[in-house]
Amino acid sequence: MIISVASGKGGTGKTTVSTNLAYSVQDATILDCDVEAPNAHLFLKPVIKDVVKAHVTIPKVDEKICNLCKKCMDICQFSAIAVIGKSLLVFPELCHSCMGCFEVCPEDALIKDKRLIGSVESGKSEDLNFIKGILKTGESMSPPLIKRVREHQRKKVNIIDAPPGTSCPVIASMTGADFVLMVTEPTPFGMHDLKLAVEAVKLLNIPYGIVINRSGKGDNEVNKYAEKENIPVLMEIPFDRKIAELYSNGEILAKEPVWKRKFKDLFNKISKLAEKEAAI
């Protein structure tokens, strides 16, 4: 089972929910796919056993063979190849590694080169499997790294800590999940971005539900929206100084039995909803 924890708005509590959820269920794997700013390790304090560099494939031209036919330039949707004058230029940072240029080159003039985009760390936090992607500073191509992180998914429970927003990295973190858990906050900003995230997850046709973090603060709009749209609110985490302090100290809320039970309940609700959907 794969549960992707997403949000729309940043800073609503994705990492709080994903780390606590992973901590509360048995034999879980947590995958930190927020590769631009991974932070689940701050709470789970894993022992890292392995670090693997992540590369993407990019084309490199063999100028002796290339006849400047431009087929590679024409198929590239990202302007990563320019044929100008008597030269073929490659812009590696624009390349999405779709392999189209290699496919269409009639002369086999393109050589597979690679470009470093980041690394994947794996280890353990007690009995929890811990995986984290770290995007290289200045790099913008995160979906291939997220896919590399997700190669570590196992048969049992996988919890994905997704990046904020609704763009490609988020889609890469939700595709193929059995359930998307949306973490939001009861503010106009949280509400606005939640709607965008819901639109995205609907397109992927994955069952989803909401966790309201810092509830009791702000307004009641998220609850009203959830009711109107028939989206299950699976948990509410109150706006509470003690919870904020635990978070600030890098502590896991679910070390307290009452919260561990709540997160287990959350997991059970998710399992039921995901199963129900799978049966349809």
Partner: peptide, 15 residues
């Protein structure tokens, strides 16, 4: 209106 690489494409066009 290209997502990225507008300058590269326009360079090829004028050349």
């Amino acid at each position: 209106n290209a997502l990225k690489g507008a300058g590269i494409k326009t360079s090829v066009l004028i050349s």
